Simulated scan of single mutants.
Amino acid sequence: MKGIKEAFIDAGEISQMLGIGMTKAYAIIKEYNAELEAKGYFTMRGKCPRKYFEQKIYGYEDYYNPDYESERNRSKVAEEKDYEAAVEDSVISEQAEVDIQPETNRLLKEDAEVAENVISEADAMVKEIVK
């Protein structure tokens, strides 16, 4: 069985690890402990289970666990192979370039008439207010 120091992380270690102040580190512990209490787990004030902390901090495994590096590299290679296979099977990769015409700011005739009516009504309203 692991000792308390190995099983739990405290605010000092979180502060140093994440480069944040002690107040923020305690706030993180308090938040994580509240989540764990809601799930029915035992918590200790000022300490958080190390495993839970590692799961909640995004990127923690990448940076602090050197054993994880080889596993991550294997998954990257697999993703790249899947992507290459998908691109080779893709219809788009076999097509020539497609020209996409830029959108124009021209109004249709009906829309232009509506816009002119709105502008003339707005001008009339302004003249009445100014009088």
Rank of each mutant, 00 (worst) to 15 (best):
Q95E: 03
A122Q: 05
N73R: 14
Y83N: 03
A27Q: 15
A115Q: 13
A96W: 00
V98L: 07
V118D: 09
E61A: 13
N117E: 09
L108D: 13
A11E: 04
E61I: 03
E116F: 09
T43G: 01
T104V: 06
E94C: 00
A38G: 06
K5N: 13
N65I: 14
M44Q: 12
D62A: 08
P49E: 10
E116V: 06
I100Y: 15
M1H: 09
Y32V: 04
Q16A: 14
V118H: 06
Y41S: 07
Q101P: 01
E84R: 02
I20Y: 02
Q16H: 09
V87D: 05
I9G: 03
F8T: 12
E79L: 08
Y58D: 12
Y52Q: 08
V87K: 09
G40Q: 09
R45H: 13
T23V: 13
E84S: 01
K56I: 10
N65H: 08
P66G: 02
S90C: 01
Y68C: 02
G19F: 11
Y60P: 03
I92E: 03
R50S: 14
R45M: 05
E37N: 01
V130E: 15
E54T: 12
Y41L: 06
A86Y: 00
M22T: 05
E121F: 12
G21K: 05
I129H: 13
T43P: 00
A122P: 00
E103F: 11
L18E: 14
K5V: 01
Q16W: 06
A124M: 05
A25T: 04
N65Y: 14
N33K: 03
Y64A: 13
K24H: 14
K51E: 14
D123P: 00
Q16N: 07
I9Q: 07
I14V: 08
L107Q: 12
E71A: 09
S120K: 11
K56C: 12
D111Y: 04
A25S: 15
K2I: 11
V118E: 12
Y60R: 04
R74V: 05
I29L: 10
S15G: 15
K39P: 01
I29D: 01
A11V: 00
R50A: 10
M22L: 07
T23M: 08
A7D: 09
R72P: 02
M125F: 09
G19T: 09
E103S: 07
E6K: 10
P66F: 11
G40W: 09
P49Y: 11
S93K: 05
Y58A: 05
S70I: 12
S120C: 10
P49L: 14
D82P: 00
S93M: 13
A85I: 07
A78L: 15
A25K: 02
K2M: 06
L108E: 12
E121N: 08
E88C: 01
E84Y: 08
D10F: 04
K51Y: 15
A25D: 01
R74L: 11
V77Q: 13
G3K: 06
E69Y: 13
V77A: 13
K109I: 08
G46K: 03
T23A: 13
P66M: 02
